[in-house]
Measured scan of single mutants.
Amino acid sequence: MLDDRARMEAAKKEKVEQILAEFQLQEEDLKKVMRRMQKEMDRGLRLETHEEASVKMLPTYVRSTPEGSEVGDFLSLDLGGTNFRVMLVKVGEGEEGQWSVKTKHQMYSIPEDAMTGTAEMLFDYISECISDFLDKHQMKHKKLPLGFTFSFPVRHEDIDKGILLNWTKGFKASGAEGNNVVGLLRDAIKRRGDFEMDVVAMVNDTVATMISCYYEDHQCEVGMIVGTGCNACYMEEMQNVELVEGDEGRMCVNTEWGAFGDSGELDEFLLEYDRLVDESSANPGQQLYEKLIGGKYMGELVRLVLLRLVDENLLFHGEASEQLRTRGAFETRFVSQVESDTGDRKQIYNILSTLGLRPSTTDCDIVRRACESVSTRAAHMCSAGLAGVINRMRESRSEDVMRITVGVDGSVYKLHPSFKERFHASVRRLTPSCEITFIESEEGSGRGAALVSAVACKKACMLGQ
């Protein structure tokens, strides 16, 4: 009897593995994704193909990295998701002549009506938060230079001027797309009239992360975010950046690689679950690469896999709870928690219980395998993109072996128990001629924006502006 049951459990697990095998990517698959990513990057950089390229390769006008001589107080704003952060950054000489960066910050959550109302409502709310922060720190009387981390696709015309191309991540505030974001912020500050600010720089969160990590390690020339969304930036040779005049030196390019796949480059790798996630998203047909990796989508992918296993009578005796059938019910943090389970399955059992399920031991094991399959594919897909960037940098610099540091931020990278190990191992397999160091950014977005502002202020002083 026991043997029969054991055989049935083994057969069930084997069927589960057959279904989950769809998520496995072979090294040849990853090399294919990497080569296609490089081709799209090239198209994004070139003037004649930029418009139709899915990977936009947006110039950021960040050319210099901090040298350690900029000092002063800077205000930093960070808008990239449902939370908005205001930070005071003091850049100065530390002990023994070292450079020191001290920060104080406060988080504000953005109400739904500000995210989806008008641009005026959104930026009025942001300036209200700045006003509140300055009151708390008794700094209303000071006109501070301000660095703005704005983590949406922007076409820069200068370091302090950028046109919002399109909202992502659930934002829909009308009247912002096609307009200068810094102008919208300046107008809102003017409307309030109770404080003055000098907006000197606007950067993407990947750029802010790279600059913040450069402060720790001067070989950091790539910034990457794996959180709600997924994106990367890197220092490109100016001669390859056709959208900006000049051939000397390097400029940081914001790849906006989340949109890779929007022209069909990933079609052969998309599964039924991916198509369902895409169809029910706020932007169907867009940001397809990001939807395979980002935390906004990972939990939902797992939920759809679990429903398939229920329908195949391989999980929960073929019956799903009402909660499990509800879109968004299986949160991405559950994926991390399930994979963090120590082996007694308590954590998995508790999560499934909150979803109205009474799982068996085998159910718990199957749910864990589903989570591992989805998150491992995410790590491997992400590795193909980064390997594409790094191999490109090595080739354009004609280096036999390139040493490089990548600064990384984002909740999936930082909080998932195995993502970074799987990701690092896969990147290294795909970049055999590179020695890569990964560092995690601390308060990256805010500190990085302030350091970019410090560079901009120093330049302005040198130019006598």
Rank of each mutant, 00 (worst) to 15 (best):
D4G: 12
D4E: 04
M8I: 06
E9D: 13
E9H: 09
A11T: 15
A11I: 14
A11S: 08
E14Y: 12
E14L: 09
V16Y: 08
V16K: 00
E17T: 11
Q18T: 07
L20T: 15
L20F: 07
F23R: 00
Q26Y: 03
E27V: 05
D29L: 05
D29R: 04
K31V: 06
K32W: 09
V33E: 01
R35T: 11
R36T: 03
Q38G: 07
G44L: 01
L47Q: 15
A53F: 03
V55S: 00
V55L: 10
K56I: 11
K56T: 03
L58H: 07
L58K: 11
Y61T: 02
V62K: 00
R63N: 12
S64V: 11
S64L: 05
G68H: 10
F74E: 01
F74T: 12
L75M: 09
S76C: 05
D78L: 06
D78N: 09
G81R: 08
T82H: 04
F84R: 04
L88T: 04
V89L: 08
K90R: 09
V91T: 12
G92L: 10
G92N: 14
E93V: 14
G94N: 03
W99Q: 08
S100H: 10
S100A: 10
V101K: 10
K104E: 12
H105M: 01
H105K: 15
Q106I: 14
M107C: 06
Y108G: 02
P111L: 03
P111D: 09
E112M: 07
A114M: 15
M115P: 03
M115F: 12
T116K: 14
T116A: 15
E120A: 04
E120P: 07
M121Y: 06
M121R: 14
L122Y: 15
F123Q: 00
D124K: 01
E128Y: 06
S131F: 06
S131H: 09
F133L: 04
K136M: 06
H137M: 10
Q138F: 03
K140H: 05
K140W: 07
K140F: 09
K142R: 10
K142A: 08
K143L: 09
L146K: 12
G147F: 07
T149Q: 10
F152D: 15
P153F: 12
V154C: 13
H156A: 07
E157Q: 14
D160L: 03
K161V: 09
I163P: 13
L165H: 15
K169R: 11
F171R: 14
F171H: 10
F171M: 12
A173Q: 12
G178D: 10
G178E: 15
G178V: 13
N179I: 14
N179R: 13
V181F: 11
G183H: 13
L184R: 06
A188C: 07
R191P: 01
R192W: 03
R192V: 12
G193F: 05
F195Y: 15
F195I: 05
E196C: 07
M197T: 14
D198Q: 07
V203N: 08
V203I: 11
D205R: 12
T206S: 08
T209Q: 04
M210D: 00
M210P: 03
I211R: 01
Y215S: 11
Y215E: 05
D217G: 13
E221D: 11
V226W: 15
G227R: 03
G229S: 10
G229Q: 14
C233H: 02
Y234R: 02
Y234F: 14
Q239H: 13
N240L: 11
E242T: 02
V244Q: 01
D247Y: 04
R250W: 04
G258Y: 01
F260L: 13
S263E: 13
G264E: 03
G264P: 00
D267C: 05
F269C: 09
F269Q: 12
L270F: 05
E272R: 10
D274L: 00
L276M: 12
G285W: 01
L288C: 15
L288N: 10
E290V: 04
E290K: 04
L292S: 10
I293K: 00
M298P: 01
M298N: 04
G299N: 08
G299D: 05
E300C: 05
E300I: 00
V302R: 02
L304F: 13
L307E: 05
L307W: 06
V310L: 05
D311S: 10
D311N: 14
E312C: 10
N313A: 09
N313D: 14
L314H: 07
L314C: 10
L315C: 12
F316N: 03
F316W: 03
G318A: 12
G318Y: 05
G318W: 04
L324R: 01
R325P: 03
R325G: 12
R325A: 14
R327V: 14
F330A: 01
T332R: 08
T332S: 10
R333W: 12
S336A: 13
V338Q: 00
V338R: 01
S340V: 08
S340H: 06
G343S: 05
R345V: 14
Q347Y: 13
N350Q: 05
S353L: 02
T354K: 13
T354Y: 04
L355V: 04
G356N: 08
D365H: 12
D365R: 05
V367L: 11
R368H: 05
R369I: 03
R369H: 04
A370Q: 01
C371I: 07
R377E: 00
A378L: 07
A378P: 01
A378K: 02
M381P: 01
C382A: 10
S383L: 00
G385F: 04
L386K: 00
G388W: 03
M393R: 06
E395W: 08
S398Y: 05
S398R: 04
D400A: 07
D400N: 04
M402I: 12
V408Y: 02
V408W: 02
G410F: 10
V412Y: 06
V412L: 12
K414P: 02
L415H: 07
P417V: 10
S418P: 03
F419H: 00
E421A: 11
E421T: 07
F423I: 15
H424R: 05
S426I: 06
V427T: 12
R428C: 13
T431W: 00
P432Y: 07
S433Y: 13
S433M: 06
C434W: 04
E435Q: 09
E435T: 07
I436T: 04
T437L: 08
F438P: 00
S445L: 13
R447N: 10
R447I: 08
A449M: 09
A450E: 12
V452M: 09
S453A: 13
A454V: 08
K458G: 06
K459I: 04
A460I: 12
C461I: 02
G464M: 06
G464H: 07
G464P: 11
